[in-house]
Amino acid sequence: MSPDAQTSTLRGQGFCILRGMLPQAEITALDRALAPVFDETPFCEGGFYGARTKRFGRLLARAPQTDQLVRHPDILALAEQTLSPWCETLQLNLTQAIAIHPGALAQFPHRDQDMWRGTTGEIEYLVNVMWPLTDYRSDNGATLIWPDSHGAAANEDAPEAAPVIAEMEPGDALVFLGSTLHGAGGNASGEVRRGLIVSYCLGWLKPYENQWLAYPPAVARHFPRPLAELVGYRQHRPNLGNFEGRCPSVLLEGGDDIALGAIDALRPDQKEAVDAYVAAQRRDG
């Protein structure tokens, strides 16, 4: 599927399944790297997370090869193209590993955009990517997704049509909008279904996962600069997410006890208005 076709499908039906985005061997290696964490992580509590489900985040710190997923060029370009009408830069919303164990019930159908309670039907807040670590099948909890439930349809009653069962294998990727109705399927098999979620959101939102706690400066300064920017070490104009009035990327260079002077980081329209106001005062003064 070409990049234009991917974008068209994502916008048209609210999701798209991309086959063979990474070699299975790389996904298998990532699964092995995360296996000890899956083993030691307790089951979730609560009907939404699922009592027979395990979840954990901070994947870039736990398995650095997660960067292959987070900054996959085709996926990242698709997310940027989808979200760019509403932000200057996007940010990483979360990385999360999920293991659905036998006996797990189907998850409550939901839209991830509802975590923010902003205007719906007019704006897209995030793009999610599900990366399977094991085969996703109808019997082991493959993601259920409702076509055409996104955008303005998110303000309507829940669709009556049956969901699509997103059957995939490691190396595939399910990309879906934050306005698309979805949920994990129930696991009626005898196997654990494992996968990863990588999510991108508008750069001016509060992300689901607190990226600055997940990746404090001592960790993030070892990331490639574009990855550090994705996890929050980048200002979003005007002046959002700053540290001492500066882009937080200054923390990648040294300690947090340095004396700094604040520097404007304004949108072009704001800078033009401020410059005109200052010039008028100087002229009149």
Rank of each mutant, 00 (worst) to 15 (best):
P23W: 01
T89S: 10
V127Q: 07
H182M: 10
L10G: 00
I145W: 01
L60R: 06
T7H: 12
R62M: 08
W212S: 11
R234W: 09
M130P: 00
A104R: 01
V274Q: 11
Q81V: 00
P36T: 10
A259N: 07
T95A: 05
R194F: 03
Y208N: 12
V278H: 10
L260E: 09
I263A: 11
Y125C: 03
D284N: 12
A228R: 02
P238D: 12
D114V: 10
L181C: 03
E88P: 00
N140V: 13
E88V: 00
L126K: 04
P3S: 12
F43H: 08
P207W: 02
R234Q: 08
T134I: 01
G261V: 11
T82D: 10
M168N: 09
P36L: 10
L90M: 15
G261C: 06
W116A: 14
I17S: 01
S138E: 15
P159K: 10
I165Q: 04
S179N: 04
N155V: 03
G255F: 06
I27T: 14
L105M: 04
F243H: 15
Q6C: 13
R19H: 13
T120V: 14
E160I: 04
P216Q: 08
N93H: 12
L92R: 05
F108S: 09
L177Q: 05
S8D: 11
N242C: 07
L181G: 03
Q68V: 01
E40Q: 08
D4Q: 14
E26N: 02
V219T: 14
F48N: 02
A218T: 06
A161I: 05
W86Y: 09
Q113K: 06
I123Y: 06
D114P: 00
Y200H: 10
R111G: 13
C247S: 15
A228C: 06
P159H: 02
L83M: 11
